[in-house]
Amino acid sequence: MIELFDVTRRFGDETAVDRISLRVERGEFCVLVGTSGCGKSTTLRMINRLIEHSEGEIHLDGQPIRDFQEDQLRRRIGYAIQSTGLFPHWTVGRNIGLVPRLLQWSGSRIQERVEALMDLLGLPPEFAHKYPHQLSGGQAQRVGVARALAADPEILLMDEPFGALDPITRQTLQGELRDLQARLGKTIVFVTHDMDEALTLADRLVVMHEGRIVQQGRPTELLRAPANDFVASLLGGDDRGLKEAALIRVEERMLPVAPEAEGMPMVRRHATVNQALSLMLWHHTRHLLVVDEDDSPVGQLSLDVLMHKARHE
């Protein structure tokens, strides 16, 4: 659990972060989002003391972070950044084993851990002997995440880790990260300026502007009730309806299959509602047949139900 109480950070006369308070529960995926210069990266880096806070208190599981020795604190917190920060003169295996080595694990234990992590992130074992420049952007970022997870930290801090990747790789990695978090139950604080990424990943969305937190809550809460025009426009303005639809899976809205559903255009059950809406527009229809991975029908989706649900939620 991470808690920030009235935390301020000044650089000279400038106040980068202004009296923010935030509480990230254990196992929560918290995304800090905002325009560049809003203080989100500074906030992140105050948590592992890469930047010291000027005022206020930051607690880790109830203990002020200033009670820890800096390096010890950082070895307990995973850290991944946009440029990956992989050491170009070290092999992938050595890069991943960095923190365990700093913690003076035994060689065989490090070896095992590295192999396990590479397996977890879908990196082929022979990659252990490659150098970072031999990897693609997506592979390098996977290594970066593996390295951050190496000593099995409770907390993971990620600063726009997917910012430099192409959209397709980014989406893949976002999905993998979500699954990973669901499986490992890590507490993640994630910084991004990409609202779609933030909406996809976040349990808790924290919108920052000019060093302050403007609004925080579950993504749907923010979409439904943005605190002001800034949050509304950041969330996509008139596109908010579709952005919200993108957070809902088709299977959450489907009804049992009726006999007349035969022959309707099909949509997968794991697709999102905005994809379903797109299909309806495309096929000029108000009804879709919902199918599973084997194309066998599992339900049906109708525009009227979507409208009704949307109104009453």
Binding site: R45, N48, L50, E70, D71, Q72, L73, R74, R75, R76, Y79, A80, I81, Q82, S83, T84, G85, L86, F87, P88, L98, V99, L102, G144, R147, L157
Partner: peptide, 23 residues
């Protein structure tokens, strides 16, 4: 030296001496 590499070295918990001599 790439500042990203140095930042991540610090962020991983390397001491200043380790950052200098190893990175």
């Amino acid at each position: 030296v790439d500042p990203g590499v140095i930042e991540s070295a610090r962020g991983m918990g390397m001491s200043p001496v380790q950052v200098f001599f190893q990175v």
